[in-house]
Computed example of a mutant assay.
Amino acid sequence: MKDYSRKGVMLAATLSALAGYVDAVGFMTLGGFFVSFMSGNSTRLGVGLALGEWDQAAIAFGLIVLFVVGVVIGATVARRVGEGRRSVVLAVEAVLLLTGAGLCTAGWRELGMVAVVMAMGVENAVFQRQGDVGVGLTYMTGTLVRMGQRIATALHGGARWDWVPFLMLWTGLAVGGAIGAVSFLRFEVLALWPAFAVVAGLAVVVALAEARTERG
């Protein structure tokens, strides 16, 4: 994270919060399955197989496949337009969230969640570097490990505050999850519309910033 500007860190924290928000809405819509946290779905897959709960295992596996498809789409877009063009990846994510919100609002929740899961996969390409994930936005285990490592470095005389951006990512996800849960309890699947609006707005803001940078 130290290779990113302050604006880059803020964008990452915002997108992490959005992932937590959407994951909470998806979790409550799907009755305990995740739309961005694939470690949780992998555990549910394993438990479902062990208990012979084939329908539960099938749902978990399907969500994992859809997420990977979203990652492939996001990575492909980033490669085609250039990994510095984050606005295009955000635009693709926004279109998928718009599709998901529209389908869920129309009563087709299962189809809507297909688009939402893919959107979360796409999001991980926003900070893609040389084909790899630069910043993990929808999962926090690696982020917490890196935070702990940076704290250990600080305690041994290294950079004192390099762990803070990782704390911001985790905090964003947790706070976003809480807001998403409250929003779902009040608005149900309509809570997906603010998520679409945020990503669409970010795509516009980032696109304008990229245009200014290109003009020099």
Rank of each mutant, 00 (worst) to 15 (best):
E123Q: 15
V164S: 05
V65M: 06
V65I: 15
A17Q: 14
N124T: 10
R79F: 11
W163C: 01
M38P: 02
R86W: 07
L97R: 07
G100T: 05
A159D: 14
A17L: 15
V68F: 15
R109S: 10
L30F: 03
L192T: 03
G134R: 10
A115R: 03
V206K: 13
P165T: 08
M1E: 12
W108F: 15
V117S: 03
L45T: 11
T171D: 09
L190I: 14
V77K: 02
V95A: 13
V205Y: 12
R215K: 09
V71T: 13
G52I: 13
R146I: 02
R6V: 14
I179T: 15
R80A: 11
G46R: 04
W108L: 15
M147I: 05
G32Y: 07
A200T: 04
V133W: 08
G176N: 04
S5A: 09
P165G: 01
F196W: 09
F37I: 07
A78Q: 01
F37R: 08
G107F: 11
V9N: 15
L63C: 01
A57E: 07
A115L: 08
G52H: 09
A13S: 12
V25C: 00
V175M: 11
F184H: 03
V92S: 00
V122G: 01
V199S: 01
F37K: 08
T213Y: 11
G157M: 09
E188N: 04
V133Y: 06
R85L: 00
T153Y: 10
A191N: 01
G20N: 01
V126L: 06
A191Y: 04
A152N: 12
S39C: 05
G142M: 04
V175E: 11
S36T: 11
F37T: 09
A75N: 06
G176S: 07
R44P: 01
G48P: 01
V126I: 05
A24K: 03
V69F: 11
F61A: 14
T14W: 03
V65R: 11
M118H: 04
E53Y: 11
W54Q: 12
H156E: 06
W108D: 13
V204G: 04
L15A: 02
L144Y: 12
L97P: 09
M120C: 04
D132E: 10
L18F: 10
V77P: 02
N124M: 09
W161F: 10
I73M: 13
L192R: 06
H156I: 08
M147V: 06
V182K: 09
V175L: 13
M168S: 14
T143S: 08
V81I: 10
D23S: 08
G136T: 14
G26Y: 05
T99I: 15
R85Y: 10
A207K: 15
F196L: 02
V126N: 05
E188V: 05
T99A: 15
G102C: 13
L111A: 12
G26C: 07
T105C: 08
V69L: 13
W193D: 06
G32N: 03
R129W: 12
D3G: 13
L103V: 05
L11A: 07
V9T: 13
